[in-house]
């Protein structure tokens, strides 16, 4: 039971704000009334409702992304007190116990900021497309059950299938660097998206996508496309970029064995390279 007797009436929150893409960022302080069972989401809800800084200045509500608030959708990733995590499971009581000072919120640094704490993570989904992270089936018609799968296989694959594309592993990765392009005045949305995709494809794909390759290459039907997936990991921006810092696995909120996936992918791509060389 959280002991509320020693809690302050109010606490302060520092938010790193940014009015739009490429705009300069600035810190802003907000004061929030303490309530039991608060998490960072409810703090941001109060800030939106107040729209006033600690100095009484009227400001627009801080923008942030969230949805399920149960740590299964991956939307609310941000940097809380210097650590990348989901805002929904960042509990105020815990944060206060960890450090005396204010709560500090920043957007992820590896993705372009849309506004305030909202970042554009389309590059992650492009990574899944590039890795062909799906099962290719003949038809959606009734063809009977899928392949039999042992309990062991299921137990190995289930943790990997829980990846919610939140981006924590990428924020923590020293090799994953921000790619931010600006749409030209005369450039259409489609042309811009295409230019983004081709730029993304040359940059590091990251732990989340490597782990998905191992998930699908372990599936009895999806492994028909295994070589294509391995080839994508051997192309520029592939697994060779990984510096083995192992930060990814430490920050994954779903505790996915990302470094195990990377090690397996490393072995599989080596075998693939040798086979291709002699093939």
């Amino acid at each position: 039971m959280a002991d509320t007797s020693s809690k302050p009436d109010h606490f302060e929150v520092r938010v790193l704000r940014q009015d739009g893409p490429q705009a300069s960022s600035y810190w802003e302080r907000h004061r929030v009334r303490y309530e039991p069972d608060m998490n960072v989401i409810s703090v941001l809800q109060r800030i939106a409702s107040q729209s006033q800084t600690v100095d009484g200045k009227e400001v627009s509500p801080v923008a942030w992304e969230c949805n399920c608030l149960e740590e299964v959708c991956g939307a609310c990733t941000m940097v809380v007190n210097g650590r990348v995590r989901q805002a929904c499971t960042a509990l105020v009581d815990r944060l206060m116990a960890e450090q005396e000072s204010d709560i500090e919120l920043q957007p992820m640094s590896k993705f372009p900021v849309q506004r305030d704490l909202v970042v554009e993570r389309r590059r992650m989904f492009r990574g899944l497309e590039k890795s062909k992270a799906w099962v290719t089936v003949d038809t959606y018609g009734p063809m009977g059950a899928g392949p039999r799968i042992s309990q062991t296989e299921q137990e190995n694959n289930y943790p990997l299938s829980q990846c919610m594309s939140c981006g924590c592993c990428l924020e923590a990765c020293p090799q994953y660097t921000k790619v931010e392009l600006v749409q030209g005045d005369s450039e259409s949305d489609d042309a811009f998206a295409e230019r983004q995709d081709s730029t993304f494809d040359g940059e590091f794909v990251g732990a989340h996508a490597i782990s998905q390759v191992m998930l699908f290459n372990g599936h009895p039907i999806a492994k028909n496309d295994a070589n294509e997936r391995l080839d994508s990991l051997m192309a520029p921006g592939g697994i060779q970029v990984c510096g083995n810092a192992q930060n990814c696995v430490a920050v994954c909120p779903k505790e996915i064995p990302l470094t195990t996936s990377i090690a397996r992918a490393g072995r599989a791509t080596t075998v693939r390279a040798i086979t291709k060389f002699f093939g």
Binding site: E65, N67, C68, E70, V72, C73, G74, A75, R121, F125, M164, S165
Partner: peptide, 10 residues
Amino acid sequence: TPVKRSHSVC
């Protein structure tokens, strides 16, 4: 939202 973040995940 990005479709992968839809409420069905709950």
